[in-house]
Amino acid sequence: MINTFFTLPEFNENYSEEIALAADVYERRKADGMKDFSLSAFEFVFTSDSRTKLEKLGQFLSTNFNYEIGEISEGDDDWELNGVATEFPVDLDNLVYWVLNMYCKGHKFDCKLEAYGAFDDPAEQTFPDIDAGLYSHYFDLAMESYGKGNLGMGVIYFSTAIRIKPQDPNSWYSRAILKDELHTPKAARLDYDKAIELAPDFIDAIINRAANKDESGEHDNAIADYSYAISLEPDNGLAHYNRANSKLRKGDKVGACLDWTKAKQLGYKYSEERLNINCA
Results as ranks from 00 to 15, higher is better:
residue 176 A to D: 01
residue 130 I to K: 03
residue 37 F to I: 15
residue 234 P to D: 11
residue 280 A to L: 06
residue 212 N to P: 08
residue 208 N to A: 10
residue 103 Y to I: 13
residue 106 G to H: 05
residue 49 D to S: 15
residue 153 M to S: 14
residue 224 A to N: 09
residue 240 H to Y: 15
residue 199 A to P: 02
residue 85 A to Y: 09
residue 234 P to I: 12
residue 139 F to V: 13
residue 30 K to C: 05
residue 220 D to E: 15
residue 159 S to P: 06
residue 268 Y to R: 06
residue 131 D to K: 11
residue 108 K to E: 15
residue 25 V to L: 11
residue 122 P to Q: 13
residue 276 N to R: 03
residue 117 G to S: 13
residue 183 H to V: 12
residue 255 G to D: 07
residue 189 R to T: 10
residue 81 L to Q: 01
residue 30 K to W: 09
residue 27 E to V: 08
residue 152 G to V: 02
residue 137 H to C: 02
residue 179 K to H: 04
residue 231 S to A: 15
residue 36 D to E: 13
residue 267 G to T: 10
residue 120 D to F: 04
residue 225 D to K: 01
residue 170 N to L: 12
residue 165 K to G: 05
residue 202 F to H: 08
residue 168 D to K: 12
residue 139 F to C: 00
residue 17 E to V: 14
residue 239 A to D: 03
residue 41 A to T: 03
residue 170 N to W: 14
residue 21 L to M: 12
residue 233 E to H: 15
residue 54 L to M: 04
residue 41 A to R: 13
residue 273 E to G: 11
residue 29 R to L: 12
residue 46 F to V: 09
residue 259 D to C: 01
residue 74 E to K: 07
residue 150 N to M: 05
residue 180 D to V: 01
residue 143 M to V: 11
residue 192 Y to R: 05
residue 85 A to L: 09
residue 7 T to V: 13
residue 79 W to A: 01
residue 167 Q to A: 09
residue 180 D to L: 03
residue 46 F to N: 03
residue 114 E to G: 02
residue 75 G to Q: 10
residue 75 G to I: 00
residue 230 I to G: 09
residue 48 S to H: 03
residue 211 A to P: 00
residue 153 M to T: 06
residue 35 K to E: 12
residue 228 Y to L: 09
residue 190 L to Y: 09
residue 95 L to C: 05
residue 33 G to C: 01
residue 227 S to E: 04
residue 87 E to C: 09
residue 138 Y to C: 04
residue 1 M to H: 15
residue 57 L to F: 09
residue 88 F to W: 08
residue 136 S to E: 14
residue 252 D to N: 13
residue 160 T to W: 03
residue 74 E to W: 01
residue 200 P to H: 11
residue 157 Y to E: 04
residue 134 L to E: 04
residue 224 A to H: 04
residue 115 A to C: 06
residue 107 H to M: 09
residue 149 G to K: 10
residue 101 N to E: 05
residue 142 A to N: 06
residue 54 L to I: 02
residue 261 T to R: 03
residue 275 L to V: 00
